[in-house]
Design a protein around this nucleic acid. Structure first.
Length: 893
RNA sequence: GGAGGAUUAGCUCAGCUGGUUCAGAGCACCUGCCUUACAAGCAGGGGGUCACUGGUUCGAACCCAGUAUCCUCCA
């Protein structure tokens, strides 16, 4: 039977993924085993898989698969979040295509369309995760807008409101004029932008009307000339000598000639611009504060969509950016524009719509953060929740100590509607239903409580008709922060079996970008609603960048299509590629070459398998490979120890690299070459059994990284019959056995010896087919007898002999303390040999000198630890004996 | 402007509490090989003043100070 020399991932992947699903290997139910739980950072329901998801979910899958194989009850809960802004934007766009304007339909109709859209397009990303091999418990898939999770959101709003942690107030918020909603600070992306700084003359009241010069006007510098109509004052620094004459004066806003005062405040920097600042409380956060301090009126000239309203008096209905251009021209024509300069500054953009964020005053709901932040900070500082890598603790602390209140309302329809009710001009009532709200209206006023039942009924009827619910929905993060609790129905039924068993979860794998507005808030919610942390370890991955170090983004078009990568290199190859380049917490410079390396690795495993599978057994043969088998057994345990150590520290790329080297170098390049029978010769039963056993251990070790190829090979008849539930995915993960240090050390010397012989061949252009003789002069206590067979096989040595004296006219070299000679048919190049030896000698002499320097230094001998001094003495003795050997060789030449 | 982090081979990164001449891995590179498991491979090899300048120390890639460059977060 012949198997292809190339591993073909496609069919394998599909076959085994559906097999795993069929047999419910991903599904978890509480039982007596130790749980190991991960909740997925719910991707945006509108999203498609990008490289960040690939990395993030590969890591989660490696962790969950390993835990599963280690006998834990592994549960990885998947799901998506409803992404208010993004989804609403998609739905609005879809409606627009159908010729429907959102304004023309009711909230209910809109939501119907939105759900339709979600059912149809939402969840693509979850399907894509399956291609990657993600072993999520799909039976537990949750969605942040489903009924139970929405209830949790609304109930926790009510809970926090009752505790006084939620309030409604007018604040300056980040307004997204395209999405027509407030967005949180975290959803604003600041970018440096080339702008213009406009220098505008304001006429001073009481001076000559028709002249514009130093005596009749002052000049301000602004990047936003379109907001001059919203000016409430001009502010100057009281200490500014240049403007002393202006104290107490008034000026006219150009074009509309509204009179505004000049105020004094040392907030103004004298050396920025002209030292005169226009104060526009409605459209700038700092100006707003200044306005409060000086009791200035707030003139809001912008509509929600970023166009000018009638308060602007001019350019009504124009977009803010068009208005900016037009007003510059109008100012110029009126002689009010002194000059325009280029200017660079930071501008905020909406993460979702990329519109320039407008600071806007509005009435919003806020959640107080200070009280919630305290225990959440404590939890991280005392190590109850571990951040990996630790460097993020500082950033976390800084943020938690300076936390600002969280604006949780959004002017959208897609999301959980705020459970606040308005009746006439009364204070809003927070309640889950209209009925409860009405009862609350009655109960909160003493005289209403005393009403007769009849009066109450009348009131109810009236309230029923006129009470209205808040139009806004809650921020999507107000759902996400409950995720680890709500996916296990910890709100609906806090004492349920799942919640008790799986919560708190073990590991959370996410990006550092959302450390604050997701991770921190989950810890807050955990403490607030359950009294417990939501997870123990937070593994923060790096950002996936391209090989030039640029962040991958749609607009740059520098992100490869993940599914395309999987098709090209196989899921296993891509997983290996992602992890290979991803040290914990550092950004990764992604390069497709890593995936290629992963694919090659899969192919290597495939071909090693072909070799072992092809062996025929001759039961009559004795086992000539005991040494090799004993060595690999030790080596495997040694490597496994290192791998486990790396896993403990979440150094997945290093764990993978150690595995890679164990498989490729130790198993394929050394072990298999040691034991493989000559061409078309049979193998003995013991060697085959040992090799098959090793191979199976290797498949298990590799499975978390490369689930598909390992599962495929695991089921080969080479390993005997497998029951239908006997799969690699649930096989026992290897455990560390005995390690024979001495054996490992000797093997390293032997590998060095083989390399040296091959080097002799290579430098002298001797074909590997030409067998050579080897003479060994032993100066150490290495037992070469045990290794000679292996050396002969690997280096094509026809005859290996121990000698007592140096062999003249042969190629010679040293490994450790021992000397080796290879008699050659051709004459050896004495000069070259001499040169080589002299070089070696010089090196050793230099080495000896440095060791001697240390040992003759009294302070070293006094201060250094005894074992270090002993070590130096050993080095000295070693070097001296080697030097003697080389000097003898030189003399013999 | 504030906080944190980084700088080691052509590239991406290891290097734990200072102690082998300590400078290491993978990839890339060079040379030779279609050696019947694998050219998606095999064998061998060459690459580095550990950003710079000082300091502490018997001893520094590692600790300290300063300089330069870059990144991230916050304002």
């Amino acid at each position: 039977m012949s198997i292809s020399t190339k591993y073909n991932p496609q069919e394998t992947e599909e076959k085994w993924y559906s097999y795993w699903l069929d047999k419910h290997f991903f599904h978890s139910e509480p039982d007596e085993r130790e749980p190991y739980t991960i909740v997925i950072p719910p991707p945006n329901v509108t999203g498609v898989l990008h490289m960040g998801h690939m990395l993030n979910n590969t890591i989660q899958d490696v962790l969950i698969r390993k835990a599963r194989m280690q006998g834990k009850n592994a549960c990885w809960v998947p799901g998506t979040d409803h992404a208010s802004i993004a989804t609403e934007a998609k739905v609005v766009a879809m409606l627009k295509e159908k010729g429907i304007n959102k304004k023309d339909i009711t909230r209910e109709e809109f939501l119907k369309y939105a759900w339709e859209w979600k059912e149809k397009y939402g969840g693509i990303i979850l399907e894509q995760l399956k291609k990657l091999g993600a072993s999520c418990d799909w039976d537990r898939t949750r969605f942040t807008m489903e009924e139970d999770l929405s209830d949790a959101v609304i109930n926790s709003f009510i809970h926090l409101y009752k505790k006084g942690n939620i309030y409604r107030g007018v604040r300056m918020v980040n307004w997204d004029p395209a999405g027509k909603t407030a967005v949180s600070d975290e959803e604003v992306i600041r970018k440096e932008v080339n702008q213009k700084l406009y220098y505008i003359h304001y006429h001073i009241a009481g001076t000559a009307k028709d002249i514009l010069d130093e005596t009749t006007c002052l000049t301000i510098a602004t990047t936003r000339p379109e907001t001059i109509m919203a000016d409430s004052a001009i502010c100057i620094n009281p200490n500014d000598e240049r403007y002393k004459h202006l104290h107490g004066k008034k000026v006219f806003v150009p074009l509309i000639n509204r009179e505004i005062p000049i105020i004094l405040d040392d907030y103004v920097e004298m050396d920025f611009g002209t030292g005169c600042l226009k104060v526009t409380p409605a459209h700038d956060l700092n100006d707003y504060e200044l306005g409060l301090k000086h009791h200035l009126p707030v003139i809001d000239i912008l509509n929600d969509d970023g166009t000018l309203n009638d308060k602007a008096e001019i350019l009504i209905g124009e977009d803010r950016f068009i208005a900016r251009k037009k007003i510059a021209k109008m100012l110029e024509e009126a002689g009010h524009l002194q000059k325009v300069e280029d200017y660079k500054s930071q501008v905020g953009f909406s993460e979702r719509t990329d519109a320039v964020i407008e600071p806007k005053l509005s009435l919003q709901w806020f959640s107080k953060m200070e009280e919630l932040a305290k225990p959440a900070l404590e939890e991280v500082l005392n190590g109850e929740v571990k951040l990996i890598p630790e460097k993020f603790i500082n950033t976390y602390r800084h943020w938690m100590e300076n936390v600002k209140d969280w604006c949780i309302s959004r002017q959208l329809w897609w999301g959980q509607r705020i459970p606040a009710w308005y009746f006439q001009h009364e204070e809003p009532v927070v309640a889950k239903t209209k009925e409860e709200a009405i009862e609350e209206l009655i109960n909160r006023v003493p005289e209403r409580r005393d009403w007769s039942e009849e009066s109450k009924a009348g009131f109810r009827k009236q309230a029923e008709e006129f009470i209205t619910q808040d139009e806004d929905v809650m921020d999507t993060w107000f759902s996400s922060w409950l995720w680890p609790i709500s996916v296990f129905d910890g709100f609906k039924n806090p004492d349920n079996k799942d919640f008790n068993y799986y919560y708190p979860t073990n590991d959370l794998v996410t990006a550092p970008e959302i450390l604050f507005f997701w991770v921190a808030r989950m810890i807050m919610a955990g403490k607030e609603f359950t009294g417990k942390k939501p997870f123990t370890n937070v593994y923060l991955t790096g950002i996936v960048r391209d090989k030039l170090g640029r962040k991958m983004s749609k607009s740059l078009g520098n992100s490869p299509d993940p599914i395309g990568l999987i098709e090209q290199y196989g899921a296993d190859g891509v997983r290996v590629g992602m992890l290979m380049s991803s040290p914990a917490g550092n950004d990764l410079m992604f390069d497709e070459a890593y995936c290629e390396q992963g694919r090659n690795f899969a192919n290597k495993i495939w071909n090693a398998f072909r070799l072992v599978k092809g062996w025929e057994v001759d039961a009559s043969l004795a086992n000539p490979n005991e040494q090799a088998i004993a060595w690999f057994e030790s080596r495997f345990s040694e490597a496994l120890t290192e791998i486990e150590h790396n896993f403990k520290q979440y150094r997945l790329s290093e764990a993978l690299m150690a595995t890679y080297k164990l498989v490729w170098d130790d198993f394929c390049a050394w072990y298999l070459e040691m034991v493989k029978p000559a061409y078309q010769q049979p193998v003995d039963a013991a060697t085959r059994a040992a090799s098959v056993k090793f191979f199976e251990q290797i498949l298990r070790l590799l499975h978390p990284f490369m689930p598909f190829i390992t599962e495929e090979l695991y089921h080969d008849e080479l390993f005997g019959e497998r029951g239908e539930m006997e799969c690699c995915i649930v096989a026992d993960y290897p455990t560390v056995g005995e390690v024979n240090e001495a054996l490992l050390k000797e093997a390293e010397l032997i590998k060095g010896l083989v390399s040296e012989i091959r080097n002799v061949r290579n430098t002298r252009q001797i074909s590997p087919k030409e067998a050579l003789a080897l003479n060994i002069k032993i100066n150490s206590d290495v037992v070469y007898d045990n290794w000679l067979n292996i050396v002969c096989k690997l280096a094509n040595i026809s005859k290996a002999e121990v000698v007592n004296d140096k062999v003249a006219g042969a190629a010679g070299f040293m490994v450790g303390k021992d000397e080796f000679f290879i008699p050659l048919s051709q004459n050896i190049d004495v000069e070259a040999e001499k040169e080589r030896l002299i070089k070696e000698l010089e090196y050793l002499q230099g080495f000896l000198k440095s060791v001697d320097a240390k040992l003759s230094n009294e302070r070293f001998v006094q201060n250094a630890k005894p074992e270090i001094i002993q070590n130096e003495r050993n080095k000295k003795a070693d070097a001296e004996s080697k030097i003697a050997t080389i000097q003898e060789s030189l003399a013999a030449l």
